[in-house]
Design a protein around this nucleic acid. Sequence first.
DNA 1: AAGACATGTGTATATGTGTACATACGTATA
DNA 2: TATACGTATGTACACATATACACATGTCTT
Lengths: 136, 136
Amino acid sequence: MQQLQRFSIQQSNVDCDSDCIHPAAVTAARKALGGAEPADDVAPLFAVLGDPTRIRVLTALSAGELCVCDLAVATGVNRSTISHQLRVLRDHRLVRRRREGKVMYYALDDDHVPELLATASAHSGERNDERQERLA
Amino acid sequence: MQQLQRFSIQQSNVDCDSDCIHPAAVTAARKALGGAEPADDVAPLFAVLGDPTRIRVLTALSAGELCVCDLAVATGVNRSTISHQLRVLRDHRLVRRRREGKVMYYALDDDHVPELLATASAHSGERNDERQERLA
DNA sequence: AAGACATGTGTATATGTGTACATACGTATA
DNA sequence: TATACGTATGTACACATATACACATGTCTT
């Protein structure tokens, strides 16, 4: 953390180093941040979703459960990579698995996932709505 | 964030690659994936949200607009870092800025952001209701 | 115009992480 | 039990990137 300079008695008015410009706004922001730092909870989740391969896996699973082999074929990704990413997704409770013989079937574990994907897609879609028409 | 990979589904090895276990499921998954590869649109957005500092910035801004200096104080992050991250957020149309004299005021630019944060928080909250160990 | 101040950016470094090879594990079948 | 096969993981490498220092830019004040 940076050192805090102590020249606070200068004009009691606007000095960004000693005292922030809008103390009321800062306190409101601190309140919004909360003491528990929710960033440490949601940021890792978003980080998991921030990989194209994992998004492809989740999107593929949105059509229904798939085994690892099918996932690899559908997404065109190495099976080893798929397994690694499935483990990441499992650790974050985004997918669940079910064994049937020697085949593992993976499925979405959370209704939040399609919701997040839809919202993010809407945001990206708005950005791309420069002159993009829906294609038949 | 990483660059997308070209993938061809012609990894004809021996068994599982040439003929997947459930061809119908694979075609359904491919249909869900779509030809336009939505992963390349939403994954970068999630990647942006996957950083604790940026989440703190967005959360702080959810209480109202703030200048860079106040953001740095509220989040406890170097002003230079704040500026860098604000640029990233700006590039993805997550925040907008407004100049007033020599002070730049930043605000959330999209209603999707609070929605995404809420959904992600709900997911994390459900996870924490059970006994879940985070990996460092 | 010059100085002060808030903000933006170039750059270097350290940390993180996605990928794939090789290999181990678990289950089913002969 | 032994073999085959789908899945999981250890490991190493390449690449992305978050951070902070130093400096640049833009605006207001004197």
